[in-house]
Computed example of a mutant assay.
Amino acid sequence: MKQESYMSVETYSSAKQKIEKEIVRLQKQMKSLRVKQRRPVIASIVKSMQDNEITIEEVADAMDKSARRGAGAGSDSPKTSLPPKYRHPGTQDTWTGRGRPPRWIIDAESNGRSREEFLIK
């Protein structure tokens, strides 16, 4: 007698049910892990808010502003470049004053020089 190489409907349904139950169990486990992971982060945020006397309203307002600022983040409009604000007198390298300061600014400040010395007037 020839063995059938396909799965019977009953076997398929049973296997599918077992897999679906396992998926539900794993999803619950993942949710539990997320809650455990987030708990200390939330506690830290609450403590920082209390230490700095920050209200929930202030956080909500900051989140709203952040969401509005981020709304256009994926837009296709090209970024406009800013004019330079600082210039290195020797190399003529420039910096807009935004983002991480260039090495020449960091080095000059560590040697006691003022950032204002490099302002473009």
Results as ranks from 00 to 15, higher is better:
His88Lys: 09
Ile105Lys: 02
Val9Trp: 06
Pro101Ser: 03
Arg68Val: 09
Asn52Val: 00
Lys2Tyr: 03
Pro89Trp: 10
Lys85Val: 01
Ala62Trp: 07
Lys2Ala: 05
Tyr6His: 11
Arg69Ala: 12
Ser32Met: 05
Gln17Gly: 06
Asp61Ser: 13
Ile19His: 10
Asp76Arg: 10
Asp64Tyr: 11
Lys36Pro: 04
Ala71Ile: 03
Lys85Ala: 05
Gln50Pro: 02
Gly112Asn: 03
Ile42Ala: 12
Arg39Val: 04
Met63Ile: 15
Pro40Asn: 05
Ala67Gln: 11
Lys31Asn: 12
Arg38Lys: 14
Thr94Ala: 07
Ser13Cys: 04
Glu10Tyr: 06
Asp61Asn: 14
Pro83Glu: 08
Asp76Ala: 09
Arg68Lys: 15
Met30Pro: 00
Glu22Asn: 13
Asp61Val: 14
Leu26Met: 11
Ser81Asp: 04
Asp76Asn: 14
Leu26Arg: 15
Lys18Asp: 11
Gly70Arg: 12
Ser32Tyr: 04
Val59Ala: 13
Glu10Met: 02
Thr96Ile: 07
Pro101Trp: 00
Ile42Leu: 15
Pro102Phe: 01
Arg98Phe: 02
Val9Pro: 04
Pro101Asn: 04
Ser81Lys: 04
Arg115His: 08
Ala71Arg: 14
Trp104Ile: 02
Gln27Met: 03
Arg98Trp: 06
Met7His: 09
Arg34Ala: 12
Leu26Glu: 15
Ser81Pro: 00
Val35Phe: 06
Ser44Asn: 14
Thr96Val: 03
Ser114Val: 00
Glu109Val: 10
Tyr12Thr: 05
Ala73Arg: 15
Glu20Asn: 10
Thr91Trp: 05
Arg25Met: 05
Lys121Ala: 13
Glu20Ala: 13
Ile45Thr: 12
Ile120Cys: 06
Arg98Met: 11
Ile23Pro: 03
Glu22Cys: 09
Glu20Ser: 02
Gln92Met: 01
Met7Thr: 10
Lys65Glu: 15
Ser66Lys: 06
Pro84Ala: 09
